[in-house]
Design a protein around this nucleic acid. Structure first.
Lengths: 382, 382
DNA sequence: ATTTATCGGTGTATCGTTTTACAAACAGAT
DNA sequence: ATCTGTTTGTAAAACGATACACCGATAAAT
């Protein structure tokens, strides 16, 4: 199995004697005050941007002293005193899911821009892991939480941490039953509406929809978006397949996607009449379906059109490249950070909902449906 | 300017009126001491596991008091006092790269098991971002750093933070020129050796190798592994293609992979004689090549075999599913955490190297080469 | 001429722990 | 009885910043 290549000599060194040039001699606010011949209070005011309390003279003196000594305020001390840490806690089922990965990445970038750091927790939707993490937050002085795709069944769950400023991405404010909550969402119904419209315009009339179990806001809304969009066009909306298998596997890493794709494909194949196109809840499922159809000899998009949602970056990598509905991830990430850091800016005390519009990205997995014998009367394309 | 981002002082809001049901009334070590009728020192000894200084009587009293009050020691305070935070800093080019994503995920899991939290920094290989992050570490009391795939050109770079305990994943200890460093690596040469052997056993003799620019330990070693393995079999090792384009794009997210794949494919097509198989530096490149070949009408594996390295989870998702060489990510992650937390355990004062063996994962992108007119004398398969 | 406000600035208690120095209690050894 | 050592415990001084209370000037208002 494995081995430790140790570079030979195994001299067991004594545990690091005294301290040669040891401590980097942390420079404190006191040192700065001394160097600038001002009080520590003034230095404190300076590093907290309370410039209106400083004369220009002292201000520059402090500035140069800080620069010369390369002073950095000790965050632990500030935090102990103020009770707040410049840290955003980030709770996510798993960053291995590429959409979550991109979202976490963008949130981290936005947080850094705001002078914050990010504490990451992959919960795998395990309540114990999540609870432990959240419980620790107060102990380390973190007051800001962003949670991605929380279970919509956890009503009131987060109330236990009521002193947190919480933003939920992909969640319904009412589901979580919090006194105060800000949410950031895609307009999920519109997203699926765009997918339906795209397929409809191509001539498809029998359209299936494949989704993971409805444990998440987006999953619920996209399904309802599908039904609405189909009804609007007087099409049969009954071909919606909810995958009940592989729940946990899906949630964790979307890594079992081959099996999921296989299941989904067989479920779709069982539909009658057979659909000419499939809308997948997200790109991962779409990719799973795509791989499975292709290995079963069903040509995409000739025999079957497929469209996903997310525009995760891997979608470009499939062959044929996946047509999909894009979420504006960076914008959503910035909004989440902005919201969690400025809760006061919300219009009502119950919080706010920020909704983003999706965008159709046409690649190569959707085409006109095959001509085929059909008893149906084709409606003319609009 | 730098470390104190102020987030635009828009929230001039009055400092939160009184305190209605406000503070959750943090319970402190003093409260516990009072409740247990002991001194705070004893409580401190208790929560730091110094049981030899406690009588059994006091010990249980403290235990029940802690449990009843639900006491959690304030981390900011301990950190201020001790100078250490139970946090591991994690520096990674970008978690959007799926291999990095899985590695970060596994490291976070291992860190939590060890009672540590993880501070994430996506550097995008931007020295400014990375420096800022590392500079802040001391300010927040973080002493443990894991860095993934640092540039091998940054000799001595990390010396500026000599008080950190550093572990580098995918790095050469000598490259970094640190007085002390622990590394965790795959046996990269062996990995490519396995790939060559697999293709060789299938009958391939003209094998190309495609890699990103050689700015990383793994990239250097895999290329050298390719040359060695080819020479060992008396094969032509000159068909190694180093992609010099798209450096930054690659490094950040591997998202421009389609273009990279296109470039790589045309470079490979220009090779003469044309190879019958390609080894890719990693799965991302392999997937890019695969998609490009397929859309160009070149059948994989019939006309061209492809093999990658990593076994990133998406590799199962391609069609045909990608044959690859697996890195034991979880084991490597655990080793990195273990090493960074126990630096003393290293055999020498210069640090240690932990090397893991890869594993061949056979899927569907490699086959016997096509029969074709050839002036070469075929060596018989062994 | 007196009051009042604003500006620019300082001293110091305080946040919740850890840690050092020290003390009481009791054991056994002389 | 005294000496020594161990066990179990305590009191109090840090750690490095923040924020409150205060203070002397100068300016504005009455």
């Amino acid at each position: 199995m494995r081995f430790f290549g140790t570079l030979g000599d195994l001299n067991v060194m004594p545990p690091k004697s005294g301290s040669p040039t040891d401590a980097a001699e942390r420079v404190t606010i006191q040192d700065v005050a001394k160097a600038a011949s001002v009080s520590v209070s003034s230095v404190s005011n300076y590093i907290n941007n309370r410039f209106h309390r400083l004369g220009t003279e002292t201000r520059t003196r402090i500035a140069t002293a800080i620069a010369e000594l390369d002073f950095r305020p000790n965050q632990a001390a500030r935090q102990l005193k103020t009770g707040r840490a410049r840290v955003i806690a980030l709770v996510v089922p798993s960053i291995v899911n590429p959409f979550n990965g991109q979202m976490v990445f963008s949130i981290e970038q936005a947080a850094v821009k705001a002078g914050y750091r990010v504490h990451l927790c992959n919960t795998m939707r395990d309540p114990k892991l999540e609870k432990e993490f959240l419980d620790n937050l107060a102990a380390v002085g973190v007051a800001d939480l962003i949670t991605i795709a929380p279970l919509n069944t956890r009503r009131g769950y987060y109330s236990a941490w009521s002193d947190l400023s919480i933003v939920a991405v992909d969640a319904n404010r009412l589901d979580l039953k919090l006194a105060r909550l800000d949410t950031v969402n895609l307009d999920h119904e519109a997203a699926i509406g765009m997918a339906v419209e795209h397929l409809f315009a191509l001539g498809h009339r029998r359209i299936a929809y494949v989704t993971d179990p409805l444990i998440t806001h987006s999953r619920v809304m996209r399904l309802s978006g599908f039904k609405k969009a189909m009804k609007d066009r007087e099409l049969d909306d009954s071909q919606a397949v909810v995958l009940e298998r592989h729940q946990s596997a899906l949630d964790i890493a979307d890594a079992q996607m081959v099996e999921v794709g296989r299941d989904a494909a067989s479920d779709v194949a069982a539909l009658s009449p057979r659909p000419t196109a499939i809308i997948a809840f997200n790109d991962m499922i779409a990719l799973g379906l795509l791989a499975t159809f292709r290995s079963a000899g069903i040509a995409v998009p000739k025999d079957m059109s497929i469209i996903g949602v997310d525009d995760a970056w891997i979608s470009q990598l499939s062959f044929p490249a996946l047509t999909t509905i894009r979420q504006p991830i960076e914008a959503m990430a910035s909004a989440a950070v902005e919201r969690v850091l400025n809760p006061n800016a919300a219009p009502t005390s119950a919080g706010s909902d920020t909704i983003f519009l999706p965008e159709l990205v046409i690649r190569d997995t959707c085409a006109k449906p095959q001509e085929e014998a059909s008893t149906r009367v084709r409606k003319p394309l609009e």
